[in-house]
Simulated assay, not measured.
Amino acid sequence: MRVMVMVKATEQSEAGVMPSEQLLADMGRFNEQLVKAGVMLAGEGLHPSAKGARVRFSGKDRSVVDGPFAETKELVAGFWLWQVRSLDEAIEWVKRCPNPHEGPSEIEIRPVFEADDFGEEFTPELREQEQRLRDQLERN
């Protein structure tokens, strides 16, 4: 199963406070363990929400809201995409992770939808299209 592992933002990360050299080194070692174990598929830190935007949908209308966004506890400061056998395995990996921020921190783990999760609505034609796109992404 694939899981998205999200490092929640803090007031400090939203203020643009960069991680210490020690934290960068600790995270580098942790990421090495993930790669060597065949768990890590991707992972990146994110700039503060002040540098981002949101696009809101209302029917056919679209509106853009520039950051920063007020609810820090709802924001993501970084992410990993992991391939694991179970949610429990992902939890065990996160428990080994260095604390991503000075002080209290939170990391959220969410399973990624797989084709079979969509049932009959995900027709053979849609599955074929999905596979073509995945193949194209791998070639790029």
Rank of each mutant, 00 (worst) to 15 (best):
M1K: 14
M1N: 07
R2S: 08
V3G: 08
M4P: 00
V5K: 08
M6E: 07
A9V: 02
A9K: 00
T10A: 07
E11V: 12
Q12A: 15
Q12M: 12
Q12W: 01
E14H: 03
A15V: 05
G16A: 02
P19M: 13
E21P: 06
E21A: 14
Q22R: 13
L23N: 13
A25N: 10
D26P: 10
D26S: 06
M27K: 11
R29H: 10
Q33F: 10
L34I: 04
V35T: 11
V35C: 10
A37Y: 06
A37V: 03
M40K: 14
M40E: 09
L41Q: 09
L41T: 08
A42V: 04
G43Y: 02
G43V: 00
L46P: 11
H47T: 02
P48N: 08
P48F: 01
P48R: 01
S49G: 03
A50G: 09
G52P: 00
A53L: 14
R54Q: 15
V55D: 06
R56E: 09
R56Y: 06
R56V: 14
G59E: 10
K60M: 08
D61K: 14
V64P: 11
F69A: 03
F69D: 00
A70D: 11
T72E: 00
T72M: 01
K73F: 09
L75Q: 11
L75W: 01
A77F: 02
A77M: 03
F79A: 13
W80G: 02
W82T: 11
Q83K: 13
Q83V: 04
V84Y: 02
I91L: 11
W93R: 06
V94T: 03
C97T: 07
C97Y: 13
C97K: 06
P100N: 04
H101P: 03
G103T: 12
G103W: 07
P104M: 01
S105L: 07
I107M: 08
I107V: 10
I107G: 07
E108M: 09
E108G: 09
I109G: 11
R110Q: 03
P111N: 14
P111H: 10
V112A: 15
A115K: 13
F118V: 08
F118M: 12
G119P: 04
E120Y: 11
E120L: 12
E121N: 12
E121T: 14
E121K: 15
F122A: 00
L126D: 01
L126H: 03
R127A: 10
E130Q: 09
R132D: 09
D135I: 08
